[in-house]
Design a protein around this nucleic acid. Structure first.
Length: 582
RNA sequence: GCGCCAGUAGCUCAGUUGGAUAGAGCAUGUGACUUCUAAUCACAGGGCCGGGGGUUCGAAUCCCUCCUGGCGCGCCA
């Protein structure tokens, strides 16, 4: 709709240029926006105000000229001048109703596929496999997944990359402990059931026992040298750790699996080549024994340049090196046209350097987009990073347990007559929805406060409310035993709330493309919440099954159906499942 | 010290990249269940958009400055 108005306005601009009201070849940056207030119509543009200066003309006067040049038929019923020079557009109800019919008739709810599909690589989740997944991995995993789904839905080719931490010195001590356990005849997989514990005791022995530390260091060397036995032990460890992750992904409904795992170790052999190529490009400088890339854009205090260290004094490589290798792989092997990193915002300086160096080194094509989609920290009630009651890092598995338990208890309270299996299923879906919605509905880049009480309260802007809204629509169809696939008749938009609902329904596509462009699922949450509240109001004020006429009943059923389908599809893009009853 | 980010209602957060009277949810107060799920809806109160300057038709948004908080600053990731 916006694009339609935009096209019309572009024609007007040409026209005005021909009339010499404004200079030729002008490409003004005007806006077409949805209005906040219905008295201002459905859409508004500031074009007249933007053009008033180059035209040397009062904005209201210019607005009148623009209005005179706009066509008077089709989607737009009325155009009006308002305020300092806004032009307000009022949509035609019949046109709106047609759009609703169109959306209902299409599998994709009226959301077009993008004209130019891109090959998009998305780096998200990326936990450290030495430990268990904790609350710090939540945002990357959930937000990245939602954006991946949205891009895919819009027709892009999405390649998920789980850049797991599966390499480095810490694995030495883990392998040493495995070896020790095995020698003692203990079952390793049992001990690894609690990875966090395993890590802790390995670290403890590493700190306390000289012999153990020696062995650990030796194992790192062996591992890097490609020792067969050592590699086997390492793979065994990774396998167990990855299956821990997979359990979390499955419980959370995150679309990651083993095929998406492409960890740090995958770039190991490539690292010397990266150094060599940086050298060939004339970017490498040796400083205090370390090999660095200095770029003019990155300066510290006193204007002294800041390095990106790519090789340590001792010859070891760093995450900058691995990230460069990964970037080049994504460009050359995966043929990425756009690369998104869902990584903690605190690493933004690292990514700025990384992207700059990669461009300078020719690892990236000129027109490849790379973006660091940084996210803020999950905070506790005390305003500090979220911890468990005992002060430890909150494991994701325990967080999920807790959410499911709490949601289940609340559901049970509301439905004393429900069976235990039913309650468990609803508690599970609602618990997961609570966690995910609470996270996704906040702006990605800022920190947010984690609160079970807030997210699991089934009132207001929460996951459970969204699920509840969906079940209310679903129950209408169940109650009336109506085949949703065979709804006939016109869509009538007589009541204000019906019009408002329809207006929101046809905005779905626009919201999705914003989410895809900016990597901001909270916009989709806000949209779905508005749709749900608008529906609730409609549901209260407009009888559907008991509508006064059959025509009205059919019309309202169609509004219900489209609401349900958008809610379900929208939540699915957020990675949130729905329930038919709760 | 330098740099990045934030400061919006009692609390948790939005604010469409400069637009019209700054919005939601929670909490508070009032009203609505013999009628499609009241996990809901309707209405009300609540604001120096951290302070101060500037830019312009127009600023929570852009620039400068100060205050407060968080984070990052060479061989961890």
């Amino acid at each position: 709709m916006k694009t339609y108005v935009r096209e019309q306005l572009s024609k007007v601009i040409e026209n005005l240029a021909q009339q010499r009201v404004i200079p030729a070849g002008l490409e003004p940056r005007f806006k077409v926006e949805h209005t906040k207030d219905t008295s201002h119509g459905d859409l508004a543009t500031n074009l007249a105000m933007v053009l008033s200066k180059p035209a040397g003309c009062n904005p209201r006067l210019l607005a009148e000229k623009i209005i005179a040049l706009l066509p008077r038929q089709g989607a737009i019923k009325k155009v009006a001048l308002a305020g300092p020079g806004f032009i307000n557009f009022f949509l035609d109800e019949n046109w709106l109703a047609q759009q609703v019919k169109k959306a209902l008739a299409s599998e994709r709810l009226g959301v077009p596929l993008v004209a130019k599909p891109q090959q998009v690589v998305i780096d998200y989740s990326s936990p450290n496999l030495a430990k268990e997944m904790h609350v710090g991995h939540l945002r990357s995993t959930i937000i990245g997944d939602a954006v991946a789904r949205t891009l895919e839905f819009l027709g892009h080719q999405v390649i998920r990359q789980n850049h797991v931490g599966d390499w480095g010195t810490q694995f030495g001590m883990l392998l040493a402990l495995m070896e020790q356990d095995r020698a003692a005849g203990r079952e390793i997989s049992m001990n690894l059931a609690d990875l966090e514990n395993f890590y802790r005791s390995a670290k403890q022995q590493f700190d306390e026992s000289f012999a153990f530390a020696q062995r650990a260091r030796q194992l790192v060397v062996d591992l890097q040298a490609g020792d067969i036995g050592c590699l086997q032990l390492w793979r065994e460890f990774l396998d167990i750790s990855l299956s821990h992750c997979q359990k979390i992904y499955d419980r959370l409904g995150v679309g990651l699996n083993r095929t998406h795992v492409h960890g740090e170790s995958a770039y190991n052999d490539d690292l010397p080549r990266i150094i060599a190529e940086l050298d060939d490009a004339g970017l490498l400088t040796e400083d205090q024994g370390a090999r660095c890339v200095f770029l003019d854009e990155f300066k510290g205090q006193d204007g002294k340049p800041l390095p990106m260290i790519v090789q340590k004094q001792d010859g070891g490589y760093l995450y900058a090196t691995t990230d460069l290798a990964a970037l080049r792989y994504r460009q050359n092997q995966l043929k990425a046209e756009r690369i998104l990193y869902f990584v903690d915002v605190r690493q933004s300086h690292h990514f700025k350097q990384l992207f700059a160096v990669a461009r300078r080194a020719g690892f990236l094509h000129a027109n490849t987009q790379v973006e660091h989609m940084g996210f803020g920290t999950v905070m506790g009630d005390d305003g500090k990073p979220f911890k468990t009651r005992s002060g430890g890092v909150a494991k994701l598995s325990e967080l999920i347990d807790e959410a499911e338990k709490r949601a289940g208890a609340l559901v049970a309270e509301k439905n004393p007559q429900m069976t235990a299996t039913e309650l468990a299923e609803i508690g599970r879906v609602a618990g997961i929805a609570s966690i995910k919605y609470a996270d996704l509905s906040k702006n990605r880049s800022s920190d947010y406060t984690f609160s079970f009480d807030q997210m699991i309260s089934f009132e207001g802007d929460t996951g459970p409310y969204m699920l509840y809204a969906y079940t209310r629509v679903a129950s209408i169809f169940r109650k009336a035993d109506i085949d949703a696939n065979h709804l006939e008749g016109e869509v009538l938009l007589q009541e204000d709330i019906e019009r408002e609902l329809a207006n929101l329904q046809i905005k779905f596509a626009e919201v999705l493309s914003q989410v895809a462009d900016r990597g901001t699922p909270h916009l989709l949450c806000a949209y779905l919440f508005e749709l749900a509240t608008t529906f609730s109001s409609f549901y209260k004020n407009c009888p559907v099954l008991n509508a006064t006429t059959a025509e009205l009943r059919n019309s309202r059923l169609q509004l219900c159906l489209l609401t349900a389908r958008i809610l379900k599809q929208g939540l699915a893009l957020l990675g949130i499942g729905t329930l038919e009853r709760m």
